[in-house]
């Protein structure tokens, strides 16, 4: 290895010299986990388990990708778990899919816009705004569907359980999510502006991006809308999997999403992060769940382990600010 490539490697490892954050190390961890699981268990490499891994990880992938948009501008959305539950509850109403399917996205956009409006125009801290939204949406969900039940339209079910070109459909959900997010983040001026806004927020001058003529408030609001829309998409996917509405299905999903985003090297202070990092973060969490299932670890320990992981990841992200 010549000196220049070793320094490039060092830079990548430390996440410096680019604004993609530290993603190489989690990639190594994910690969190591996969290899170890393949060696330690006979089921891991089986086709059915891999298909299951993708299907199980899909809601996390979709919500984490959405969460990444608000984290990049230094925000946080704690309401997405409720939006996921809410979406399944709406889909399980006794209404035709042509109404409920567009309806859930419309409502999610409204929720995201309200979050964004409170944060950018009414000066409410993102955590407070989205936390209260979490409660409001969860309350409405429980009014609609106090316990799990109801039936979702067959079309939704088919979109999740079917196969195409010999591959299970969830694979295509994943590809579509990634392409859409890639287009928004890297293939548009909007994505570039998100990084700019986040960079300003992280360096303590929240007006920096505005000085370049970027309408920061509007862009931040849109980020919350996008985050909510991805949460609704995850809700549709989950509704297709559990074939019913469930007020608790999204419980704590916002924290899993934040954990995945943070593992993938995206800085919670904003401006630094990457889509591939987020995908890697999702892979780490999904492999963790899948591995513990294969090794018959109880779900309660899984919760605790994820909490420890989140603690460890954020403890490694140094920042200047004390507090929230």
């Amino acid at each position: 290895m010549n000196p220049s490539s070793s320094s490039l490697f060092g830079k990548l490892l430390a996440g410096r010299g680019s604004r993609q954050g530290l993603w190489l190390l989690p990639l190594v961890i994910a690969l190591a986990m996969a290899l170890w699981l393949a060696a330690a268990t006979s089921q891991f490499g089986q086709w059915s388990n891999l298909a299951n891994l993708v299907a199980q990880g899909m809601p996390l992938l979709i919500t984490a990708v959405g969460q990444m948009f608000v984290v990049l501008v230094g925000g946080l959305d704690l309401s997405i778990g409720s939006v996921v539950s809410f979406t399944t509850a709406i889909l399980a109403l006794d209404l035709p899919g042509v109404i409920t399917l567009p309806g859930v996205f419309l409502l999610a956009a409204l929720i995201g816009a309200t979050n964004g409006y409170c944060i950018t125009r009414l000066n409410v801290h993102p955590i407070v705004a989205t936390l209260s939204m979490q409660y409001v949406v969860l309350g409405i969900t429980r009014v609609l569907r106090p316990v799990s039940g109801g039936a979702v339209p067959d079309g939704v079910r088919w979109m999740v359980e079917g196969t195409f070109l010999g591959l299970p459909l969830p694979v295509f959900w994943g590809i579509a999510t990634i392409l859409l997010a890639w287009k928004l983040l890297y293939g548009s001026r909007y994505g570039l502006h998100l990084f700019a806004i986040g960079g300003g927020v992280a360096s303590g001058s929240s007006d920096a991006a505005r000085n370049f003529g970027i309408p920061a408030s509007r862009n931040i609001m849109l980020a919350y809308v996008i985050c909510s829309l991805f949460a609704a998409l995850a809700g549709v996917f989950l509704a297709g999997r559990i074939v019913s509405g469930d007020p608790n299905v999204g419980l704590l999903m916002e924290l899993d999403a934040i954990t995945a985003v943070a593992i993938g090297g995206t800085q919670l202070s904003g401006g630094v992060g990457s889509l591939h990092g987020t995908i890697i973060g999702v892979a780490v969490l999904a492999l963790l769940s899948n591995g513990m299932n294969l090794l018959n670890v109880t779900p309660f320990v899984q919760t605790a382990v994820k909490g420890v992981l989140l603690l460890a990841v954020v403890a490694l992200q140094s920042r200047k600010k004390i507090g929230l």
Binding site: F195, A196, A209, G271
Partner: peptide
């Protein structure tokens, strides 16, 4: 300085008028 530290030189030059 008003440049954004997490953006490249080219991005800073064209920010807002890409």
């Amino acid at each position: 300085l008003s440049l954004l530290p997490n953006m490249t030189i080219a991005e800073n030059m064209f920010l807002g008028r890409e």
